[in-house]
Design a protein around this nucleic acid. Structure first.
Length: 285
DNA sequence: AGTTCCTCCTGCGGGC
DNA sequence: TGCCCGCAGGAGGAAC
C-alpha cells in the first residue's frame, strides 16, 4: 500500500499544470544566466549541451503537453517531465538560497531567482529540442500523444471510436496516453468512480453513452484537482524546499476496505497492469 | 496493431 | 535498534 507521503509526490496533469502556472510568471521573458547540472543521470541523460543551449537565452513562455512542460526559447525548447517524484520550484530568497540537497539535480539561475529541479527517484526527464529539428510537438516523446482532456477534440465519441475492438481494460486504456493524456493512476480510478464504470471492463465494450459520462468525469476530476492546486499555489513557489503538492479528498484511491462515500460498501483494491486500482463494487458496474 | 511484461530508482514499511 | 527484503509508480520500449 502506498504510504501517504508517497501520494504527495505523484505529479499527474493537474500537478504539472499547477507547476506551470506557478513558474511561468517568473521565468517568462527572463534570461537564463547560468545552468548548473549536478546529476545528468535522469530517465534519459541530460544533454551535455544543456547549459550551452540555455545560458544567456531568454525563455519566452511555458506551455504544457500532457505531463510535459515546454519552455520555449529562440533556438528551441527545454522539455521537462516530472516523472513520479519531480518538482520544479522557484527560490526567490537568493541570500538565503538553500544549498542543493542530495536530489536537487539542476538549477537554472536567473538574476533574481533560481529555478530548481528535484527528483529523488529520477524517473523525470530534462531534454533539449532544437528548433532546427522542427516544432517541439514533433519530438518523439510528444508526437504520438493523445488529445488534451480540456481540448474540444476530447469527447465521449473520441473515447468510443478509439476503443472499438480493444480488449484491454478501460482503466489501462485511459492510462496509456495514446487516446487522452494526463490521466494517471490516481485520476483514472477517480474518474471511473465518478462515471460509475468498473475499471476492469474491456475498453471495447463500454457504450457511447457511458463514454460521454466518462469524458465529463475526467474533465471534472482534473479540473477539481487543478482548482485545488491553484488555491495552494503559494506553497509551490517559495523559499523552502517542501514539496507543495496537493491532494484531493479521493473517492476511492488508496481507500481499500474503507466505506464508499456514496453507498458505504467497502472499496476494493485490485491490480491491473502492475498498478493499483480502487473501485466500489456497488457503484461501478 | 494490440497486449503484456520489464525496466529505471529511491524511500518506506514489514518482518525478524 | 537495525538490517534485509519487497513493493510502489510513469511510461517508454521490448517481446510476444
Amino acid at each position: 500500500m502506498c504510504p501517504p507521503a508517497c501520494l504527495l509526490d505523484m505529479p499527474e496533469l493537474p500537478e504539472v499544470e499547477v507547476t506551470r502556472r506557478g513558474i511561468e510568471p517568473y521565468v517568462a521573458g527572463r534570461r537564463v544566466q547560468r545552468v548548473d547540472v549536478r546529476n545528468f543521470a535522469l530517465r534519459w541523460p541530460v544533454p551535455a549541451t544543456l547549459a550551452r543551449e540555455l545560458e544567456q537565452r531568454v525563455i519566452h513562455k511555458v506551455e504544457r503537453r500532457g505531463k510535459y512542460l515546454l519552455f520555449e526559447l529562440d533556438d528551441g525548447w527545454l522539455i521537462v517531465h516530472l516523472g513520479m517524484t519531480g518538482t520544479l520550484r522557484v527560490l526567490r530568497n537568493l541570500p538565503a538560497l538553500p544549498p542543493a540537497a542530495r536530489h536537487d539535480h539542476i538549477d537554472w539561475i536567473f538574476d533574481e531567482f533560481v529555478m530548481r529541479f528535484r527528483d529523488p527517484r529520477r524517473f523525470g526527464a530534462v531534454l533539449w529540442h532544437p528548433r532546427a529539428s522542427g516544432g517541439v510537438l514533433e519530438h518523439p516523446l510528444l508526437a504520438s500523444l493523445g488529445v488534451e482532456p480540456f481540448s474540444s477534440a476530447f469527447s465521449g465519441t473520441l473515447l468510443h471510436r478509439r476503443t472499438r475492438g480493444r480488449t484491454v481494460s478501460i482503466k489501462q486504456a485511459l492510462m496509456a496516453g495514446d487516446i487522452v493524456v494526463g490521466v494517471g493512476n490516481i485520476y483514472a480510478s477517480e474518474s471511473l468512480f465518478r462515471a460509475g464504470i468498473r475499471p476492469s471492463t474491456p475498453a471495447g465494450r463500454v457504450s457511447l453513452p457511458r463514454y460521454e459520462l466518462l469524458a465529463d468525469a475526467i474533465r471534472a476530476t482534473l479540473a477539481a484537482a487543478i482548482d485545488k492546486g491553484g488555491s495552494t499555489l503559494r506553497d509551490f513557489v517559495g523559499s523552502n524546499g517542501e514539496s507543495g503538492y496537493f491532494q484531493l479528498d479521493y473517492f476511492v484511491y488508496d481507500r481499500a476496505g474503507l466505506p464508499c462515500h456514496a453507498c458505504g460498501v467497502p472499496i476494493r483494491h485490485i491490480v491491473q497492469g502492475q498498478r493499483s486500482t480502487y473501485y466500489c463494487t456497488r457503484c461501478q458496474r
